[in-house]
Simulated assay, not measured.
Amino acid sequence: MVAVNDKFPTETKFVYVPITPETSDIKACGIPGPLDFDKEFADKTVVIVSIPGAFTPTCMENHVPPFLEHLSDLKAKGVDVFIVVAANDPFVMSAFAKANKVSDDSVYFVTDPDAELSKKLGFTLQLPPGFGLRTGRYALVVKKGVITYVGNEPGSGLTVSSYESVIAAL
């Protein structure tokens, strides 16, 4: 499992659908493309919040919204980029961003294809048949490629990966 002071896994590639004026409607689909963590964010402070699934009760109602509501507080603490990640397909993650009214260009809702990053970190979640392997519920703070906070939820609650825990760690 990953720990504080570990290097963030190199060659991490997410899949991302940028929201443009032409694709801002929730019914509009953009074109997915790779988002290379090393190229885009190597010199930045990044908060990554992983959720088991977009549009699920805890993720939609309690986990992601506080981060978005307090984005200015994260930025005041030095955060350059906020990423929400799940194993959902990139079109679902794009719709999830739109449903959350994301318009800030420092916020990304991305796909962890086949939960590869989460596997490397040791933070996957095996759900019952029909739901399959998912990204676990966790939060990371990565500063210039080094992990400075790890909050992997020990159960089904929302504690160490919450907004309150992450902001306190910054």
Results as ranks from 00 to 15, higher is better:
51 I>C: 11
51 I>F: 12
51 I>G: 03
51 I>V: 15
51 I>A: 14
54 A>W: 06
57 P>N: 14
57 P>E: 11
57 P>S: 15
58 T>S: 15
58 T>Y: 11
59 C>E: 08
60 M>Y: 11
61 E>I: 15
62 N>Y: 11
62 N>L: 14
62 N>M: 10
62 N>I: 08
64 V>W: 05
66 P>M: 04
66 P>R: 03
67 F>G: 03
67 F>L: 10
68 L>Y: 06
68 L>V: 07
68 L>Q: 07
68 L>F: 05
69 E>L: 10
69 E>F: 12
70 H>F: 08
70 H>Y: 04
71 L>T: 01
71 L>Q: 01
71 L>A: 01
72 S>G: 12
73 D>V: 09
74 L>K: 07
77 K>I: 06
78 G>N: 12
78 G>V: 07
78 G>E: 11
79 V>D: 05
80 D>I: 05
81 V>D: 02
82 F>A: 02
83 I>L: 09
83 I>M: 12
83 I>G: 02
83 I>F: 07
83 I>W: 02
84 V>M: 10
85 V>D: 00
86 A>T: 01
87 A>E: 06
87 A>G: 15
87 A>F: 01
88 N>F: 08
89 D>Y: 04
90 P>Q: 12
90 P>A: 15
90 P>N: 11
91 F>Q: 13
91 F>H: 14
91 F>E: 06
91 F>L: 15
92 V>L: 10
96 F>Q: 08
96 F>A: 12
96 F>P: 06
96 F>S: 10
97 A>S: 13
97 A>T: 01
97 A>E: 03
98 K>T: 09
98 K>M: 12
101 K>F: 09
102 V>R: 08
102 V>C: 05
103 S>C: 06
103 S>P: 02
106 S>G: 04
106 S>N: 13
106 S>A: 07
108 Y>W: 03
108 Y>G: 01
108 Y>R: 00
110 V>R: 01
111 T>Y: 04
111 T>P: 04
113 P>Q: 14
113 P>N: 14
113 P>R: 13
116 E>I: 07
116 E>Q: 13
116 E>L: 10
117 L>E: 00
117 L>G: 07
117 L>C: 06
118 S>G: 04
118 S>L: 02
119 K>L: 02
119 K>I: 02
119 K>F: 02
119 K>A: 08
120 K>V: 04
120 K>C: 02
121 L>P: 00
121 L>F: 04
122 G>D: 02
122 G>F: 07
122 G>S: 09
123 F>C: 00
123 F>Q: 00
124 T>N: 01
124 T>P: 00
125 L>P: 00
125 L>Q: 10
125 L>I: 06
126 Q>D: 15
126 Q>C: 09
126 Q>A: 14
127 L>N: 10
128 P>C: 08
129 P>H: 09
129 P>W: 09
131 F>H: 06
131 F>P: 00
133 L>C: 03
133 L>S: 01
